[in-house]
């Protein structure tokens, strides 16, 4: 069994500006792959190269073991579906009409189309299919867009910032669906939301200014950066006044910040952090009765990425 996608050393320039700089990656089949990065990092360019809408200046791309050369073949178009960031639906048509139209574009027979529409209606809880898309809420529009992406039963589903700005219920439904789909298809998602990536991705690839900054499974990355770096101590006081009393003992400092009745103390590995922590513990002596809870919080993906971007 080959890889879903293999990108070998590709570069892309737009009017002299490097959008991608010798990027290589491999996406395993039946996984959820997160392509991460801030705006302008090169995610969309990479995605458009993968789906054959853009040609790289150098390097090769293989999708389902087929080399991409000037666009997708009809075979690949049958196997790869994209859910764009923009809604990309016929808003004057109903949910059913949109699903039917795109299903027919895959050449599916009517009976199968109707079965699939019924299945997706239930999975994505689309409700009344005869509502016009323009009259739907943002959440339902997103669900419909995802349903359109799934109607052709693709082997690879690409989500290009497809869950931006949706409500929690929709996000939950979509995440559950994607996790369940992993057995049958490969999902590639680009997102700003690292929280979302943490929730569903098996493997993440972090781009910054057209270059790879980081890649690996979530567990490996968090483990690696937690050990090497730092964490927060979260101290919850009984009220804001008590928290402020302790906060004032330190004056202006970057390692301690206050939010309501909570104090956050950042620590790093090494002698400096040990001293800070010892000092802090000494100072709060006598105020134990004001403290409700103390917890240690390890860095999440977002914090790790922010650190990496800053260090860059």
């Amino acid at each position: 069994m080959g890889d879903a996608v293999k990108v070998v050393n590709i570069s892309k320039k737009y009017k002299g500006v490097v959008a991608l700089d010798h990027v290589s990656l491999t996406i395993k089949k039946n996984s959820i792959f997160g392509l991460l990065g801030s705006n302008g990092a090169g995610k969309s360019t990479l995605l458009h190269i993968i789906i054959g809408l853009l040609n790289p200046n150098e390097g090769d791309v293989y999708v389902l073991d087929e080399k991409i050369n000037k666009g997708f073949s009809k075979n690949l178009k049958n196997k790869v579906a994209i859910v764009p960031q923009k809604l990309s639906l016929y808003e004057e048509l109903t949910i059913f009409e949109n699903l039917y139209f795109f299903a027919k574009s895959y050449g599916l027979p009517r009976k199968e189309v109707l079965e699939k529409i019924e299945g997706l209606k239930n999975i994505l809880r689309l409700g009344d299919l005869h509502r016009k898309v323009k009259n739907l809420s943002g959440g339902y529009q997103r669900r419909t867009s995802l349903a359109v992406g799934l109607i052709g039963s693709p082997e690879i589903l690409i989500l290009d910032e497809a869950t931006v700005g949706i409500d929690l219920e929709t996000k939950k439904i979509i995440n559950e669906l994607l996790l369940s789909l992993k057995e049958h298809m490969t999902v590639i998602t680009t997102t700003h939301s690292l929280e979302e990536a943490e929730a569903i991705c098996d493997y993440v690839y972090f781009l910054h200014k057209g270059k790879k900054v980081l890649e690996g499974t979530l567990q490996d990355i968090i483990k690696k950066y937690s050990a090497e770096n730092s964490g927060d101590i979260h101290i919850v006081f009984k009220d804001e006044e008590a928290a402020k009393k302790i906060f004032d003992l330190f004056g202006e400092t970057k390692i301690l910040r206050m939010e309501g009745n909570k104090l956050y103390l950042v620590f790093f590995s090494g002698q400096y952090s040990a001293n800070v922590l010892t000092n802090f513990l000494n100072k709060i002596k006598g105020y134990e009765k004001d403290i409700v809870d103390i917890s240690i919080h390890k860095p999440n993906l977002e914090e790790i990425m922010l650190q990496l971007i800053k260090s860059d």
Binding site: L53, I82, P84, K86, S88, L89, S105, Y106
Partner: peptide, 14 residues
């Protein structure tokens, strides 16, 4: 503007 043409171009329709 609605991006539907882009989406359609990713399907097998010529």
């Amino acid at each position: 503007e609605q991006n539907t043409l882009y989406r359609l171009s990713t399907t097998p329709v010529s």
